[in-house]
Deep mutational scan, measured.
Amino acid sequence: TQTTHELTIPNNLIGCIIGRQGANINEIRQMSGAQIKIANPVEGSSGRQVTITGSAASISLAQYLINARLSSE
């Protein structure tokens, strides 16, 4: 079954999640098997909405990979 998880990434950290020309986010997508959508910046908001869709296992793996990127910054 597909589930969806949403999280907010601070604007100053979204770059390390996306990577150069989307390299990091594509790697996270491939490794986790989850669909990951990053919302466009919202004016006045300090973060970007990230939506992860997939199986429970792929979502938790995607979250783990995202958190690993954030903590390495």
Rank of each mutant, 00 (worst) to 15 (best):
T1N: 15
A68H: 15
G19T: 02
P10I: 02
Q30K: 15
Q2W: 13
S71F: 07
I36V: 08
I59S: 05
T8G: 03
L7C: 07
T51W: 10
Q30R: 14
S32T: 07
G47K: 12
S32H: 00
T51R: 10
Q21P: 03
A56R: 11
S72C: 10
G15D: 12
T8E: 14
I9K: 03
T4W: 05
N12I: 04
S46K: 12
A57P: 11
P10L: 02
Q30V: 06
L65H: 15
N24Q: 12
E27N: 14
T1S: 12
R48N: 04
R20Q: 12
Q63E: 12
T51K: 12
E43G: 08
Q63S: 13
N12R: 13
T8S: 10
G54D: 01
T4A: 09
L7W: 06
I52R: 00
C16H: 08
S46Q: 10
A62C: 01
G15I: 01
L13G: 03
Q35S: 12
T4K: 11
G15E: 10
R20L: 11
I17D: 03
S72A: 11
N40E: 12
Y64V: 15
G15P: 10
N24W: 07
A57E: 14
Q2D: 13
I66C: 07
R20V: 11
S55R: 05
S46M: 08
G15W: 08
H5K: 14
I66P: 04
I66R: 00
Q21T: 07
R48V: 09
A62Q: 01
I14T: 07
G15A: 09
R20G: 07
H5T: 14
P10D: 04
Q2N: 15
S46T: 10
A39D: 13
L65Y: 09
V50R: 01
Q30E: 12
T1I: 14
T8F: 14
G47R: 10
T3S: 15
R29A: 10
A62F: 02
I28K: 00
S32K: 01
N12L: 05
I59A: 11
A57C: 11
V50I: 13
T4C: 09
I17W: 02
I38G: 02
Q49N: 10
K37W: 06
N40C: 09
A39Y: 10
L61S: 14
M31W: 05
T8M: 13
I52V: 06
N12K: 12
N11H: 11
Q49T: 11
G19S: 03
A39W: 10
K37H: 06
A39S: 13
